[in-house]
């Protein structure tokens, strides 16, 4: 899950960390997909085995939570993007950029 098309700063070749190795990325993907499948299956089995105690009819659906997770994630991704497009202004919109810099107060702080 470390694919990143939008790393804004300089991409450096040859600086691949532990998680950037191709083998590692594959393992991560497999693990993610496998655990998704396992918990979806467990959910369906749980329905049959009587583990689940749905509060409403809605969450009586076998993979309701899986669907909910995916749908909300999609809505959130799109919504966040739209909101960002609509409401983000340049950094100097309210304050001048100089306001963000910190005068050295002699305490040697970052």
């Amino acid at each position: 899950m470390s694919d990143n098309h939008h790393t804004p700063a300089s991409e450096e070749t040859g600086d691949t960390g532990f998680f950037e190795k191709p083998g590692m990325r594959k393992i991560l993907w497999v693990a993610l997909l496998a655990s998704c499948a396992i918990f979806a299956a467990l959910g369906i089995y749980g329905m049959v085995a009587g583990w689940m105690h749905p509060y409403f009819t809605l969450d009586g659906l076998p993979v309701f939570y899986a669907l909910a997770g995916a749908i909300v994630a999609a809505v959130l991704g799109a919504g966040g993007r739209l909101l960002s497009e609509a409401l983000t202004k340049p950094s100097d919109y309210y304050d001048s950029p100089a306001d963000e810099t910190r005068p050295d107060d002699g305490e040697g702080r970052p």
């Binding site: 694919d3 689940m52 997770g69």
Partner: peptide, 21 residues
């Protein structure tokens, strides 16, 4: 049921974000 539902919710959300990326 808590374990399963919560993990479903999180994992599929993660999956969707990962796919989107």
């Amino acid at each position: 049921d808590h374990l399963i539902t919560q993990m479903q919710l999180i994992l599929f959300a993660v999956l969707l974000f990962a796919l989107a990326r």
